[in-house]
Write a protein that binds this DNA or RNA. Structure first.
Lengths: 233, 233
DNA sequence: CTGTGATCTAAAAGTCATACTTAATGTGCT
DNA sequence: AGCACATTAAGTATGACTTTTAGATCACAG
């Protein structure tokens, strides 16, 4: 799933990034490029490139005569897909999943409303198809197939909203949905009510009923929030 | 306002980044690091670091034997504060401002609702103070002072929501508000209704009335959207 | 003659090592 | 306290070498 490290600097990042977001180097820690480059057995140039990337994510700050300082969490670019992935892979995955779900429940209803106004015929068709796919895979522990259609459904809604900021959250939603499926009891079929809601949203969008699409999507995300309250602390 | 270029690679970025987001190098364009490093009169190492950062923003992709290719807009990390700044400084500022305002109107009401549940006493006090400041500067063309309190108000709401994803949008909202003020007729005082709404939101949060805080904030952002429809295409 | 597939070539990124510069921190002296 | 200075780690520049791979070239079979 994750892109194979295509270059040394990327391989270093895949190791150093999670270490930082995972708290292995807590904020305030000071690293030195030379030491790091020895530790990872790469040249200084490679390590410098990796540090530059971390710096652009506001995970660290590099200052002369001091070193590379890990920044406090509030500074991090938490919308960076790579940062999100690293954090989801780490220890505070539950907290991360929660904050992303809250974001979802704010954004998706609005996106659905816009989608009802802007979706193309193809996007409407895609939505219906996804909904059908969800129904088809909603029983008998066929969670993988269900997830696939679920993800595509929400991706399509976000894209169809016509707002690039919304569209860009498709990956985030995909992560959340995938994370949820893989942490749920694997034998449990998805909530039938949720499936129905998706079908209805596809309908509402097709019929250009923005208010209804928004309200129905709100119910979906509300369900996701409640589910989170049940499963997580 | 923008951080002074602290290093050659940053200076290159401040020039190359906007050039890409501004369409000077349209998606599909191929750049070569050697040529760039000559053009910008920096060493290859510096240019490589700059390219790495652009790559981490998904603005470009670097492939062997091909060069550095500018990626299509849909790939860009549009939540990266730097990318946002570059785009706001460029030609499609209006479109960008619109999509950010839509995002705002989805997120802020939800954030206000959460803030009513989670805001600390200090944050409540800060909100009230901001609202008072807005009232105080709402007449007589004192837009600068008004803006300052407006920005701080929304920042506080987002932070008080307790959701880090929301909190991180403080800078975005600040940009939008600043942009709006500086593009409006400068003699026009802010809408009194909006001022009142802010005061009421502060009240609602203080009184832990989540539903009311949410609804009032929705009215504020709705106003921002309408304003956009009037001013922009 | 054409299409398919293996092979070769060269172009550009990637990596590494080294020498040198610059800025900032902390120390020690007055 | 204030200032000069030494030290440290990042920043910059350059050159040599490696690796990947797009695209051309060529060979062979249909």
């Amino acid at each position: 799933m994750t892109a194979q490290a295509r270059g040394l600097h990327a391989r270093v990042l895949e190791s150093l990034g999670p270490a930082i977001t995972g708290g292995e180097y807590p904020p305030g820690s000071v690293l030195r490029t030379d030491e790091l480059s020895q530790e990872f057995e790469v040249s200084r140039s490679v390590m410098r490139e990796a540090v530059r990337v971390l710096e652009s994510m506001h995970l660290v700050e590099s200052r002369r005569r001091v070193g590379v300082t890990v920044l406090p969490t509030e500074e991090w670019n938490v919308y960076d897909p790579q940062v999100i992935r690293w954090r989801l892979a780490g220890a505070d995955r539950p907290r991360q999943l929660r904050s992303l779900t809250v974001l979802r429940s704010a954004v998706e209803p609005a996106a659905a409303g816009l989608a009802a106004r802007h979706a193309t015929a193809e996007q409407c068709a895609a939505l219906t198809e996804c909904a059908i796919g969800m129904v088809a895979h909603s029983r008998g522990g066929r969670l993988e197939g269900y997830l696939l259609h679920d993800v595509e459904f929400h991706r399509t809604i976000l894209r169809a909203s016509g707002n690039e900021m919304f569209a860009r959250l498709g990956d985030v939603v995909a992560e959340v949905l995938t994370g949820r499926t893989h942490h749920r009891v694997m034998f449990e079929d998805p909530d039938p009510a949720a499936v129905t809601l998706h079908v209805k949203v596809a309908e509402a969008v097709r019929e250009r009923d923005a208010a209804r699409a928004e309200e129905l999507t709100r119910e979906i995300t509300l369900g996701a929030l409640e589910e989170l309250d049940v499963l997580a602390p």
